[in-house]
Amino acid sequence: MNQKTMTFLLFGSFLFLTANSRASSDVSLAEVDFDHSVENIKSGAQVAMDVCRLCHEFKYIKYRNLLEIGFNKDEVDVLRGDMPLNTSILSTTKPEIASKLFGMMPPDLSLMAKARRGGARYIYTLLTSYSMDAEEHVDNKLFPGIKMPDPFAYAIRTDDVRQKELDQRIENVSVFLQWTSDPKAKERRRTGYYVIAYLIVLTFLFYLLKRKVWRTLK
């Protein structure tokens, strides 16, 4: 084995081990092929405003941010009531009442996707993991003993059509929460393509320059 292969193998194994150490502790999450289109984010936002917002706040999202995902001014005005555009989206239930009801403050949702390994996949899996046992007791398989009652009544879904509808709603909410946790993701990736393309050209020129300079060396 020559030196280069050896180095390659060693650094390769190093990367593999490091990467694996993160992957191995992932719980099994649902495999979903999310569609992160603006339409889906907006539908998810509508569900989130109707359902999640009853108890949860979206601390780092302001009403005006909804304009970025396809809401028009009138729709936002309906949602915000008399709150200014530049305020965080808070829950409609008073926090004191919510924490009395559930025994804890319902957490902020705007960073939730980033705060859980798996992001949108985690949220999707969590919301679709509610089920009912023989004694009609509802629990969550991913998060047993969770204090949040089944928000979409997923455990008592009746037929396949209803399930499909729910899955779609939950998928949209997951996509929306992915957006709230990282609203600049799209801009970041778009910039990234230009940056990487530029760097590849630049590096190639540097390579040519290096070769040209070194050729003068006897």
């Binding site: 990736r189 940056v195 760097l199 590849i200 630049l202 540097f206 290096k210 070194w214």
Partner: peptide
Amino acid sequence: HPYFTAKDLYGLGVFLIVFCFFVFF
């Protein structure tokens, strides 16, 4: 200069491609 300035610039380019991949993606 110019031999190692050129070589370091080339190395920097390769480094930045990997670095920016993580930063942006």
